[in-house]
């Protein structure tokens, strides 16, 4: 697909600089807290040092995403909590119902296991159960994904669980530019938003405008363009898909790489439009294959663009196993550039 408007390019006006995704997210939080006094940040060690004798803001979040917020906005708005995920998410949801815009950090998104009721039974359902009266403008941030040798309970890709839940919006940026614009959009959104940050991406860099900007939900980005095949990739799989696309381009094979950016809502039109032209689809999703986004997108395309397909759809996913600790095993677990490339060659050869 050639749709230049959707290619990620920094805005033309205003200053910008090279930032890591960590810096971009941190900047978005600073700017939104500055703009709106009802925005609060809460979670475990979002500042760090509460009740301790040493430095304040010692952590700024375990990955440093919220660094500097507490010194600037104070402990009333940057709240270190006990390690009590149900209490954190419940307080964020209740506060969202009553006038605040909380950004709750779940640290590792694997921890939804100990607060999922407050997410899927409470926050996600308020609007519907209460007949359209509730507003729950909250953001839950958490890190996802394998690659840091963090083991089975700190490495999952659980986006399918939240995408499956009506009432939640689900965002997963693949680069610093998108992360800033999507997080600002998430904070300003009036619905509960799950904002998933892949830990392998925190130190990736790109040009990011200094001023605040919003990237609307439900608009996929084409990070590479070409009509020979379509790759849909999610989160940390986007740079891998881009690398494969660049390699294939040297052989004269040109593929679209589509980054949905938000999984709920999902820009299925962009995917279908691309497949209508290419007829060949590879979906790269670090989740386990069953009930993954790869499976979901595959079914959407099979239903809506079956006539356009010239080869079976190929899914490149994690296996149906927990994330292993051993670096050798973990590397084999994650969809690799080699597997993505092979899948593209398979659909091209079919």
């Amino acid at each position: 697909m050639n749709n230049p408007q959707q290619v990620v390019t920094p805005p033309q006006s205003g200053t910008s600089s090279i930032k890591t995704m960590r810096e971009a997210i941190n900047e978005a939080l600073h700017q939104e807290m500055e703009r709106d006094p009802t925005v609060i940040v809460m979670g475990e060690e979002v500042s760090g040092g509460a009740g301790c004798q040493g430095q304040d803001d010692a952590y700024g979040g375990v990955f440093g995403l919220t660094k500097g917020l507490m010194p600037k906005f104070g402990r009333e708005r940057v709240i270190d909590t006990p390690i009590s995920e149900s209490a954190i998410i419940g307080a964020a949801a209740g506060a969202a119902n009553t006038g605040l815009r909380p950004v709750a950090e779940l640290m590792f998104f694997d921890f939804i296991g100990v607060c999922f009721d407050q997410i899927f039974n409470q926050a996600a359902k308020f609007r519907y159960m209460f007949g359209g009266k509730a507003r729950t403008p909250m953001v839950i941030r958490g890190t996802v994904g394998a690659g840091l040798r963090a083991g089975a309970q700190h490495s999952s890709m659980l986006h399918p669980v939240v995408v499956h839940t009506p009432g939640l919006k689900v965002v997963i940026p693949s680069n610093a530019y998108d992360a800033k614009g999507l997080l600002i959009a998430a904070i300003r959104d009036d619905d509960p938003v799950i904002f998933l940050e892949h830990k392998l991406l925190y130190d990736t860099k790109c040009e990011v405008p200094d001023e605040p900007y919003v990237i609307p939900f439900g608009e996929a980005a084409f990070t590479r363009e070409g009509s020979d095949a379509t790759i849909v990739a999610i989160g940390a799989m986007v740079p891998r898909a881009n690398a494969v696309a660049d390699k294939l381009a040297q052989e004269g094979i040109h593929v679209d790489v589509i980054d949905p950016r938000t999984l709920a809502p999902l820009d299925d039109e962009a995917i279908i439009e691309s497949v209508e032209v290419s007829g060949r689809l590879v979906i790269v999703d670090e989740a386990h294959e069953r009930c993954s986004l790869a499976a979901d997108i595959s079914s959407i395309v099979a239903e809506k663009a079956f006539h356009a397909l010239r080869a079976p759809i190929r899914k490149v996913t994690a296996p149906h196993t927990p994330v292993p600790f051993s670096p050798v095993l973990e590397d084999a677990y994650m969809p690799s550039e080699d597997r993505i490339e092979q899948a593209v060659r398979d659909v091209l050869g079919a």
Binding site: T38, I40, E76, R77, S86, A87, I89, G90, A91, A92, A93, G94, A95, A96, N97, T98, G99, L100, P102, D117, Q118, N121, Q122, F126, M129, F130, A134
Partner: peptide, 25 residues
């Protein structure tokens, strides 16, 4: 009235949030 709640123990965490709003605002 922020809601009846069919999950036993579902409400107290949410009321903390409402109390947090009152305190913050």
């Amino acid at each position: 009235m922020l809601g009846a709640n069919a999950i036993v123990g579902g409400g107290p965490p949410l009321c903390n949030g409402a109390a947090l709003s009152a305190k913050t605002l």
